[in-house]
Design a binder for these strands. Structure first.
Length: 424
RNA sequence: GGUGGCGUGUCCGAGUGGCCUAAGGAGCACGCCUCGAAAGCGUGUGAGGGUUUACGCCCUCCGCGGGUUCAAAUCCCGCCGCCACCGCCA
């Protein structure tokens, strides 16, 4: 808000990377007008309250002195107070809603435009040479790793069940990721999977993505709870309304949870198998930092996430997302995309973002200015490290052999007890 | 889920309608004292918001939300949380 008051131009320009300029101007006008109203109402209310307190005190003193106090007559100003307060509530509510609808400001080096404007900024490894490419769905079937039929039988379309060595591969991947994140200095959290709506709002996922997550009905959850779409929501929500100790920043945490999403069930050829579903496993890293630490933290997180992919020996690329293709809550997003031989495309296994103070404002997560007593909002950064439902098919496809067997990445061999998955 | 007790500042803890503009203590910070430290003494010590060039002034917050009253930490109602016991349960 202060930013809009002080430098409306900059806000408008940055937002125009995401929204239509006319729309931005309209929204900002309305916000500034509401802000004006809010402040004048507050002044009025404060003045009235002050008067009222003085009257009460005079009454008390008179009584103490033994005099019969003059009754305080309800006058016009006094009667107005409840009305003013109601008006203020109304204005503040509207202001909050308008503000909540604004997306975050894209960073300076983020360009406008959609997916087509994304830029590949780094590549690791080479696409493996494979003579006759089998896709991961076929490989999974041959190796008995994923049972889609029974998954659907259990959960409906959009669900699968890992079986046998597939379950062990998935679990081995998760353990590999967990260990590496711990080594990188992140604290391991296992949060609830069911969160209150307030947590969804703080993360900036509500109100916009309200319909993309699973909500419990009011009968069983009167307070409003939903299944988390990513553990980012939980990590952020965990620190809601807190003032973090400045000395402990950057605060690094990670969590493993399944992610539950009501994705439009696309049966595109490049989203088959475990690539897109209503439930998938993801390990999420998160940092709360001082504003000046955020740049370095973003780079550290991307590099760390990449090292996880490299550790598995997978070929990938890093992309800087354009404003239109990145989440509205984020200022800058870098994707790590892994090579899928069957489609000849790269598929996101990690999305690392800098949120600025957008989420921290909503969640009221602050730190104390060193030396000063002023509190300021922290910056938040989050990133997948990593999504196993995407790694899994990439491993199968990139490491497949002519006979349909799959070479197990070295770091997983001990965990799986084998260096080769063979057709049964 | 049931019954009972409890929820006050960074922490402990007093406060049952009006000098509560929240006692007292601990912790922390700064200062004095000291060769240095401890002890002692003094001062300060939360959040959000409004207003102001600034010093400052003002408003709100005693788990949360309503109500009663000229006046609420204090009385009433609802909710949430914690503790204990009971029930149920991996």
């Amino acid at each position: 808000m202060e930013l809009i008051r002080k430098d409306r131009e900059a806000v408008a320009t940055a937002l125009a990377k995401r929204l239509d300029p006319a729309e931005v101007a309209g929204a900002l006008d309305e916000i500034q007008q509401l802000d004006q109203q809010r402040r004048s109402l507050i002044s009025e209310i404060d003045g009235e309250r002050q008067r009222r307190k003085a009257e009460s005190r005079a009454y008390a003193e008179a009584k103490r002195a033994g005099r019969e106090p003059e009754p305080v007559a309800p006058d016009a100003g006094r009667r107005q107070l409840p009305e003013l307060e109601a008006a203020l509530d109304e204005v503040q509510g509207r202001l909050r809603n308008r503000m909540a609808e604004l997306p975050n400001l894209p960073a300076d080096d983020v360009v406008s435009g959609g997916k087509e404007a994304n830029r590949v900024v780094k590549t690791f490894g080479e696409p493996p040479a494979i003579e006759k490419v089998r896709d991961h769905v076929e490989l999974s079937r041959m190796l008995g790793l994923v049972d889609h039929e029974r998954g659907v039988k259990l959960g409906g379309s959009g669900f699968w069940m890992y079986t046998g060595m597939g379950a062990r591969l998935e679990w081995a991947l998760l353990n590999y990721l967990i260990e590496r994140n711990v080594e990188a200095g992140y604290e391991f959290l296992l949060p609830p999977h069911l969160l209150l709506d307030t947590a969804g709002f703080a993360a900036g996922q509500f109100p916009k993505f309200y319909d993309d997550v699973y909500h419990l009905d009011r009968q069983s959850a009167p307070r409003g709870q939903f299944l988390l779409p990513t553990s980012e929501t939980a990590i952020l929500g965990a620190y809601q309304d807190e003032i973090l100790e400045t000395a402990k920043l950057p605060l690094k945490a990670f969590a493993y949870t399944p992610c539950y999403r009501r994705e439009a069930a696309g049966s595109h050829s490049d989203e088959r198998g475990t690539v897109r579903g209503h439930q998938f496993n993801k390990v999420e890293i998160f940092q709360f930092t001082l504003p000046e630490q955020a740049d370095a933290a973003l780079e550290e997180m991307v590099t760390h996430a990449e090292s996880l992919v490299e550790g598995l020996g997978l070929h990938y690329q890093r992309s800087l997302l354009a404003a239109g293709d990145s989440s509205a809550a984020m200022r800058k997003t870098l994707d790590i995309e892994v090579w899928m031989p069957s489609t000849g495309k790269y598929k996101e296994v990690s999305s690392v973002s800098w949120g600025g103070d957008y989420q921290a404002r909503r969640a009221a997560i602050r730190y104390r200015e060193p030396g000063g007593k002023q509190t300021r909002f922290v910056h938040t950064l989050n990133g997948s490290a990593l999504a196993t439902s995407r790694l899994f098919p990439a491993i199968l496809e990139q490491f497949q052999q002519p006979d349909g067997s799959v070479v197990v990445p070295e770091v997983l061999r001990d965990r799986l007890g084998t260096d080769l998955l063979s057709p049964r």
